[in-house]
């Protein structure tokens, strides 16, 4: 465990807590893409299958349970909670996220570390996580006014994978040159997708105006 990875995990955890806070405190999920939340739930389930088979550390197991349950809780809220579900921008959240699932799965069948069920699920979760934010970014461009908590949620979500890239650089130089090109490439794509969001978030912060993504 190194500082970059710990910072990354904490930033990721914080992003989920910010979203849970927004939904719980405002009883609203306006501006939040349910499709992105569903994709994240699939990512965590596909990646953390080893939760019951391989014990790595208490920290690792606890965090896996937290991520799976929190993503499931957010999806449940957006689908079933009587007050929250009414605030879902159904007609704005129109990204065809099934395409992302299919493309990631095909990619995982072709590019994986080993052609085993576990490894294909792991590669699938890595590829899907890289593009899971797309429905949310499209929704932000559509819904002109982005409320602060949703903006902060996306910001922390983007920052977490950037910390992981630093973690991979650190591990590359300290633990030997393990070939981990799958998370490397997917992580770079994932962070690049946030680039324009980071730019407009920084502008809105600098000019002290509401965050608005150009259509």
């Amino acid at each position: 465990m190194n500082a970059f990875r710990f910072l990354g995990d904490m930033t990721h955890l914080f992003s989920v807590l910010v979203l849970l806070l927004k939904i719980y405190a405002t009883k609203s999920c306006s501006g939040v893409s349910r499709k992105t939340q569903e994709l994240y739930m699939v990512v965590f389930v596909a990646r953390y299958m080893d939760l019951f088979t391989d014990y790595i550390s208490l920290y690792n197991s606890v965090m896996k349970v937290v991520f799976i349950t929190s993503s499931a809780a957010i999806v449940w809220c957006m689908r079933r909670h009587p007050q929250v579900r009414r605030t879902y921008d159904r007609d704005q959240d129109t990204f065809r996220h099934v395409v992302l699932v299919a493309a990631s799965f095909v990619l995982a069948l072709i590019f994986n570390e080993r052609f085993t069920f576990r490894e294909i699920c792991w590669a699938f979760s890595i590829y899907l996580e890289a593009v899971a934010i797309l429905p949310q970014l499209v929704l932000l461009q559509r819904s002109r006014n982005v409320d602060n908590l949703t903006g902060q949620y996306v910001l922390f979500l983007g920052a977490y994978r950037a910390f992981y890239i630093l973690n991979w650089i650190y591990r590359y130089f300290t633990e030997g040159h393990t070939s981990r090109w799958i998370p490397w490439i997917a992580g770079l794509v994932q962070t690049a997708l946030y680039a324009d969001f980071f730019y407009y978030y920084f502008l809105s912060w600098k000019n002290n105006v509401k965050l608005e993504l150009p259509a």
Binding site: D9, I56, N60, M63, R114, W122, N167, T178, R180
Partner: peptide, 10 residues
């Protein structure tokens, strides 16, 4: 066979 590197990251 080379032991599979344990996936210790989240």
């Amino acid at each position: 066979a080379t032991p599979e590197p344990v996936k210790d990251e989240l």
